[in-house]
Design a protein around this nucleic acid. Structure first.
Length: 617
RNA sequence: GCCAACUUAGCUCAGUCGGUAGAGCAGCUGAUUCGUAAUCAGCAGGUCGUCGGUUCGAUUCCGACAGUUGGCUCCA
């Protein structure tokens, strides 16, 4: 049994860099230790915001919150309370769920605890002693029963928690924190287990960092595509349509059309055939493919004339039939088939979220059938495709390899081959990647591409899946050079993923201010008085003739009001027309950032915009 | 699907401790022709998400359903 002081803590158990950072944070009282460490270790990594130090701070804040909750709500049982990406949470079981109204009181109690500067003490106990210690805490009991050896506990005052540590020296070290929200959660993330009440919060070493974090949260709210979708008149959801299904408004549909046209052209350039299948296919076909067995709970079904049909949740089946429509030779491979295919998946109601998680969506889907030897090159080709497209939209991305899940079809041998093929392509790409064990599709492993938006949030868009199974089930083959019949390999892949999700992410990425080539309305012509109406109409005609998207605002409104309306729609260019411009036949463009360009001739303006749209920046 | 909260005019929101509601913006009409983020005035707009229950009476209380939001789980 040992009390571990802050000083000892710094010499134990976690990375040197973190210790140095923590020592620096606490240098007021731990100056000598920090100096000592700096003498033996490298002093460089003393950085504000060091990840480990921040995690320790947040985890300690979670303990403080748990103490506050137990003091305010006697009988509340504690479950777990880790630090997470942006803060921390703690799960509780209580006679009622906590509500946002509870948070101020908890915060106040936490402030008291922080002010009191209570020391965090570490103790190590044998399992039986620890069990006795948590007689009133069933969740802790369960955790202890699974632990080996001496069990470490941390206490601050009368509050004791099972914990690996480390922690701050004392509670006063919490510089700034805020409780953010309450939510439901399950014990151990299992929906069959107890339902707990979770409180989320965040903490930082100083107030400035907290303020900046809260500002980022506000910024995310301002950029929320659900709000922008309404404000910019892009799309709507309607309860009479049903949850998770989008109705596209004119401006949003135009944006979508522009992205889809871009995609069609890019696929044509890269040797894809455009194909298309129907929305519903006989149930037997889904049984043959394995979808009925493995994906049925997510599918919609219908029956007409005693024939059962499945509404497609994926596009692959028609593509298989395209392949089978004639005898294929090795000379035909690789065969790449592309479809902007709308699929319908019965996602559980609770997961729906704006455009990023819907029940009907369109994939920029393609299936590549190739020889086993071609697989690696095809995967690399797709990865290059992804890079090119993401560059156009200004997204950075990360790669993940997902391996065989528990529920899957196909032989071990095929899974190994497919996984190896993807791994090879990843290695060849030279990019860093992570591995998600057991996260693959039921028919094959996959490479997932996650893009980061402007607020550094990650979204899965592109995915490349390697499939040996469907060609088998559909008995696909090609005639090899030696005249024998061979089985092709199939790659499933999307680049943007779901057009809906991509537009949602793109909207937040640009905060609704789409680059010129994607802006539904590129130019709005504003008149100061109705003496400029004729010139305005003439300009609009010329712009439209040059395939630019322009509108006029001839309303009997003050210029300020017209500017404001155009500004709120984030239209890239405004043209302001008063008597001066009419007399000299000029246009004076105003950018949406408020900057005014010098007056120029109409043709010059058209060239400028045409070039800007062509560059897609 | 589960836990929790929410749903009042096209939008953003007040309000009714049970006696059928109000503002701003948007819309329409009129006046105003005014140079870079909101001109003024008037008018119109709601069976208070839907369906049941309790009640003399429900937008308000209760229940179911639908939808939305934050999480959990799942996923493009």
């Amino acid at each position: 049994m040992a009390d571990l002081s802050a000083a000892e803590l710094l010499t134990q158990n976690y990375p040197k860099e973190a210790k140095v950072a923590i020592a620096a944070r606490w240098q007021g009282q731990l100056y000598d230790l920090a100096a000592q460490l700096s003498a033996t270790a490298t002093p460089e990594p003393v950085l504000p915001g060091d990840r480990e130090a921040l995690d320790i701070l947040r985890h300690s804040t979670a303990h403080i919150m748990a103490q506050a909750v137990q003091e305010l709500f006697p009988g509340a049982k504690i479950a777990i309370g880790p630090a997470i990406e942006d803060g921390f949470y703690y799960d509780f079981e209580y006679e009622r769920p906590f509500t946002p109204e509870d948070l101020p009181a908890i915060e106040e109690k936490m402030q008291e605890i922080i002010k009191a500067g209570i020391t965090f003490n570490r103790k190590e106990l044998e399992r039986e002693e620890a069990q006795a210690c948590f007689a009133a805490e069933p969740y802790k009991q369960e955790l202890i029963s699974e632990l080996e050896g001496p069990i470490s506990l941390y206490s601050q005052g009368r509050f004791v928690d099972l914990c690996r540590g480390p922690h701050l020296p004392d509670t006063s070290r919490v510089g700034a924190f805020k409780l953010l929200s309450v939510a439901g959660a399950y014990w151990r993330g299992d929906e069959n287990k107890a339902s707990l009440s979770r409180i989320y919060g965040t903490a930082f070493f100083d107030r400035k960092e907290l303020k900046e974090h809260l500002r980022l949260l506000e910024e995310a709210k301002r950029r929320d595509h659900r709000k922008l979708g309404r404000d910019l008149e892009l799309f709507l959801f309607h309860e009479d349509v049903g949850a998770g299904r989008v109705v596209w408004l004119p401006r949003g549909m135009l944006l979508r059309y522009l992205i889809e046209e871009f995609e069609r052209k890019e696929h044509m350039r890269r040797g894809y055939y455009m194909v298309q299948g129907p929305q519903i296919l006989k149930r037997e076909l889904w049984e043959k493919s394995g979808h009925y067995e493995h994906y049925r709970q997510n599918m919609y079904f219908t029956e007409v004339d005693e024939q059962a049909y499945g509404i497609k949740p994926m596009n692959c089946l028609s593509h298989m039939l395209v392949y089978k429509s004639k005898v294929r030779s090795y000379r035909d491979l690789p065969m790449r088939m592309f479809e902007l295919g709308t699929v319908h998946r019965h996602e559980r109601s609770g997961v729906l979220h704006g455009l990023t998680r819907v029940r009907s969506f369109t994939q920029d889907d393609a299936h590549i059938l190739c020889t086993p030897e071609q697989v690696a090159d095809e995967i690399l080709g797709v990865m290059n495709f992804v890079t090119d497209v993401m560059d156009v939209f200004g997204f950075d991305y990360t790669l993940e390899l997902s391996t065989r899940p528990e529920k899957s079809i196909g032989t071990d041998h095929d899974w190994e081959l497919a996984t190896e093929a993807l791994l090879n392509a990843l290695r060849k790409s030279g990019r860093a990647y992570e591995i998600n064990e057991g996260d693959g599709a039921f028919y094959g492993p996959k490479i997932d591409v996650k893009i980061k938006d402007a607020l550094k949030r990650e979204w899965q868009c592109a995915t490349i899946q390697c499939d040996f199974t469907l060609p088998e089930r559909f008995d696909l083959h090609y005639t090899a050079a030696d005249g024998t019949l061979k089985r092709p390999v199939m790659l499933h892949r999307v680049i943007l993923g779901s057009i809906e999700r991509f537009i949602g992410v793109l909207t937040e990425h640009y905060a609704g201010a789409f680059p010129l080539w994607l802006a539904p309305e590129q130019v709005r012509i504003l008149t100061v008085t109705n003496r400029a109406d004729a010139w305005a109409e003439e300009i609009k005609s010329a712009l439209v003739a040059a395939e630019l998207r322009a509108e006029v605002d001839l309303r009997n409104e003050k210029l300020g009001a017209k500017v404001r309306d155009a500004q709120m729609l984030k239209i890239p260019y405004m043209i302001i027309l008063g008597d001066k411009e009419v007399d000299e036949k000029l246009v004076t463009p105003r950018l949406r950032n408020g900057e005014n360009l010098p007056a120029m001739g109409l043709n010059q303006f058209i060239s400028r915009l045409t070039e800007e749209a062509r560059l897609r920046k």
